[in-house]
């Protein structure tokens, strides 16, 4: 049973890796941000799964922090990090 759960966790890890290539590709800062969001939700799922599989309840607290951080990161990104003016939309685009 434990093996199955760890297998599922590995599949989720693969899902994160697939999604994270979007960080590298961009092209806009918003694309990179949403890949970070993906890391947040999938990370929460992995942590909840491992908390159960490895009987480590503390991992659920880590999942809780992940969920909170993902929200904070998105707000901070929109309010502070990304302030392109009009006409700057091409910034970061690759030809």
């Amino acid at each position: 049973m434990k093996l199955i759960l760890v297998g599922i966790a590995s599949a989720l890890l693969l899902s994160i890796i697939v999604g994270l290539s979007r960080v590298e590709r961009g092209p806009t800062p918003a694309d990179r941000m949403l890949a970070a969001q993906l890391f947040g939700t999938t990370g929460v799922a992995i942590l909840l799964l491992l908390a159960e599989a490895m009987e480590t309840p503390a991992l659920r607290d880590v999942a809780l922090v992940f969920a909170l951080l993902a929200a904070m990161a998105a707000v901070a990104f929109v309010k502070r990090a990304w302030h392109p003016g009009p006409g700057e939309s091409e910034k970061g685009e690759r030809p």
Partner: peptide, 24 residues
């Protein structure tokens, strides 16, 4: 935790989409 992720995800999606739209 699930509820938190849902609310955070929907709000973040809205903010990022709005930021993308207003920046053109």
């Amino acid at each position: 935790i699930w509820a938190l992720v849902i609310v955070a995800g929907a709000t973040a999606g809205h903010l990022v989409a709005e930021a993308a739209r207003t920046s053109g």
